[in-house]
């Protein structure tokens, strides 16, 4: 039973359909083991945004305050897309490499241990 309602066959209105975001899609990005940022960030982006734009422009806004941001070696960074290992293509649009509405991207930089080595 998808809901316990007094109205037979009650169906809820989906609030966060991509159509409601005026041409954008939502992409969440989180930096694993770096808790200076309390949660992953949500970004509304045109689906045609390239991965390079996401990484070098959009993510900078959210993450660059971190003392280790400049030390990230993007060549050895590992990515997860919705929990699965993922190899990004830098000059391909997000949507064309499977990063769709409300996808979660996580990146891992195992050599960077966070501020004071405490995963901050």
């Amino acid at each position: 039973m998808p809901v316990r309602a007094i109205t037979p066959d009650y169906v809820g209105e989906v609030k966060d359909l991509q159509a409601n975001f005026h041409g954008n899609q939502l992409v969440y990005v989180g930096w694993d083991h770096h808790l200076m940022f309390c949660a992953a960030f949500a970004f509304p982006l045109p689906p045609t945004t390239t991965f390079r734009q996401l990484r070098d422009e959009v993510m900078v806004e959210g993450f660059s305050a971190h003392p280790e941001w400049k030390e990230i070696d993007w060549d050895s960074t590992q990515w997860l897309l919705n929990g699965e290992p993922f190899i990004p293509q830098l000059d391909v649009a997000l949507i064309d490499q499977g990063i769709d509405h409300k996808s979660l991207l996580r990146f891992q930089t195992p050599e960077l241990k966070g501020f004071m080595g405490a995963a901050v």
């Binding site: 969440y28 949660a39 960030f41 305050a65």
Partner: peptide
Amino acid sequence: YTKALPQLCTTCQIPMLFTEVDDPTQLSF
């Protein structure tokens, strides 16, 4: 002051700030 907006839990609506029960260094997704 953090710059971007956080991801929220659909049910409790709290920013997804809680960590894994067995690993306080990793956010729980």
